[in-house]
Structure formats: structure tokens, C-alpha cells
């Protein structure tokens, strides 16, 4: 039996799609405040050949707890499995690892957006008695001004090439015209030009926009890991050899300080 932890996350439907290829499925969830250690104890107590979850924050956390409780290896963010052989994601997807997953039950999470979603079907709600371990005490909603980076249909981002915090005015103008969220690269947040919440990347936000506009961003793997969820990437850079162009669908070779205002002006012109 393949035990799958599911929640309301869309990634759970992808994990179910993957797990169903492994055998008979038993989908489970929990009620009440999130309490990872207690929930993992309940998962670990099930008699399963494999325990699977989405490679989400919760999925990876729960499976790590299960691995610790059962003293078994856990493979995070798997994209393929064949017997003991797993292929899993490293470096935010910039590299793959082929490994042998010893031990039983097999513990793994499914890398986000690498598998088709499936109907989840019946879900059993497991009991997880409060064991006194840390749990969510309250949820504080954040009053968000503007478009959320994670869910925006268009993201306009600036990198080192923008040059300063003030330089983002032209990025913000274009984003405003497109109803887009403003993003940036890690160099920008490290320099303090933008808050970390704006960072697109392996250690920032992973976007899923229809269009990503990368302005003055060289395209380090750290950045691409966050940007590649976009359906199309348009890169603006003075350097035709910039690595960003190897991940881009559209390229403008030029100085963003001229190109970005020109795009904004053209948008205003065509809209009359």
C-alpha cells in the first residue's frame, strides 16, 4: 500500500498522480492545527510500502520527520522512481541526482510541477493526538498591497543592472502598466535595494507567471531556479552572452535603462 499525505495544496494532486503509478493508494490528511511532529508520528505508524507527499514545505517537513522517527532514508523532490532507483532534484532543479534509496518503507516527496495532477479520490482523516510538540498557535494574515509574486500572471524583475534602489522606478512603472508584480534577483536583496519578499530564486519565491520579464539579470542558476516556472521568459540585457538568454524565449540586447521606458511608452501609445 502506498500512503499519500494530501492537503488542499494543488501539489498534492500531482503527488497523487505520481504515487498511483507505484501501487494501491491510500490518501490521508489531518484535521486541526498543523503539528508536524505529531502528524508524522501518525503517518509513521501506518503499515505502508511507501509514504509519499508533495515536495511542498509541509510535505518535505513531514517526510523528514517520518524518516527521523523510522530511522529510514528520505528522498526529497523525486521526479522518477524505478524499484530502489530514484531521480531527484538538486540545486532547485538545476541539477538531478540519481540515487539508490535503501530501506523500507520508501519515503519520498514529489518535485513540484514535474508530474501531471490526478483526481485525489477518497481521503481518510487520521488522528494525531497532541504530543506537546510545536504546533501552529495562530495564523496572521498579511495585508498585502499589490500583486503577489507567487501568483502574478506577469512579473517584471530587476537585477544588478538596475544599479540602485531608485533605479527600480522604471521597473515599477512597467509593472504597473502590465498589472504585474515587481521581482528582483538575489544581488538586489543582498544590496538592500528591495525587500527579500521580492526575490525570485532558489532561496526566494518560485513564480508561475505567464510572462517573466528579466531586466539586467545575468541569470545565475540560483535565479533561474525561481524563474523557470514562468511559461515565457523575456530577458533584457546588454551582454549577448549573459546566461539568462539560454533560459529565455525572447531576448532584447540593450540597456534596460533605455529599453524598459521605451516599452512603457509603447504600451501607453498603443493603448491611446
Amino acid at each position: 500500500m502506498i500512503l499519500v499525505y494530501v492537503d488542499s495544496d494543488e501539489l498534492s494532486a500531482q503527488a497523487v498522480g505520481f504515487a498511483r503509478t507505484l501501487g494501491d493508494l491510500h490518501a490521508v490528511t489531518f484535521a486541526g492545527p498543523y503539528q508536524p511532529t505529531a502528524w508524522a508520528k501518525a503517518l509513521a505508524a501506518q503499515d505502508a510500502d511507501a509514504i509519499v507527499a508533495a515536495g511542498s514545505d509541509r510535505g518535505n517537513e513531514l517526510l523528514a520527520h517520518v524518516g527521523a522517527i523510522l530511522d529510514q532514508p528520505f528522498a526529497a523532490n523525486v521526479i522518477a522512481i524505478d524499484g530502489d532507483m530514484v531521480t531527484r532534484v538538486r540545486w532547485g532543479g538545476s541539477l538531478l541526482e540519481e540515487a539508490r534509496l535503501h530501506g523500507a518503507p520508501k519515503l519520498l516527496t514529489v518535485a513540484p510541477h514535474t508530474q501531471p495532477a490526478a483526481e485525489i479520490g477518497d481521503v481518510e482523516t487520521l488522528d494525531a493526538p497532541d504530543d506537546g510538540s510545536p504546533k501552529v498557535l495562530e495564523r496572521v494574515e498579511e495585508s498585502s498591497g499589490g500583486v503577489s509574486l507567487r501568483d502574478a500572471k506577469v512579473v517584471v524583475s530587476g537585477g544588478r543592472g538596475v544599479g540602485s534602489a531608485e533605479g527600480f522606478a522604471i521597473i515599477e512603472e512597467l509593472a504597473g502598466l502590465l498589472g504585474a508584480a515587481v521581482g528582483c534577483s538575489r544581488v538586489v536583496t543582498s544590496a538592500g535595494w528591495r525587500p527579500h519578499a521580492d526575490q525570485v530564486g532558489q532561496t526566494g519565491t518560485k513564480i508561475s507567471a505567464d510572462l517573466y520579464v528579466a531586466c539586467g539579470i545575468s541569470g545565475a542558476t540560483q535565479h533561474i531556479a525561481g524563474a523557470k516556472g514562468a511559461k515565457k521568459i523575456l530577458a533584457i540585457n546588454t551582454d549577448p552572452e549573459a546566461p539568462i538568454f539560454a533560459s529565455a524565449d525572447y531576448a532584447v540586447i540593450g540597456d534596460l535603462h533605455e529599453v524598459v521606458p521605451a516599452i512603457s511608452a509603447e504600451l501607453k501609445r498603443v493603448r491611446g
Binding site: Q72, P73, F74, A75, M85, T87, R90, G93, S94, L95, L96, E97, E98, A99, R100, L101, H102, G103, L178, L211, L234, A235, F245, A246, S247, A248, D249, Y250, A251, V252, I253, V259, A262, I263, A265, E266, L267, V270
Partner: peptide, 30 residues
Amino acid sequence: KLEKLRLVVPEGQGKQAEVLEDAAQVVAVM
């Protein structure tokens, strides 16, 4: 017990981007 056998660079990392010459072309793509 999670025994690394080898690393692999995933396929599809060398896209050929379509070069756009001016703002009008960019807006047309948008």
C-alpha cells in the same frame, strides 16, 4: 542509505531565444 550514484544536468537548458529589435516588437509579443 540514500546512495548517490551520479549527477545529471537536466535537458533543455540551452534555449534559443528569439531576438526582439525594438519596443514595438516587445509589445506585440506581450
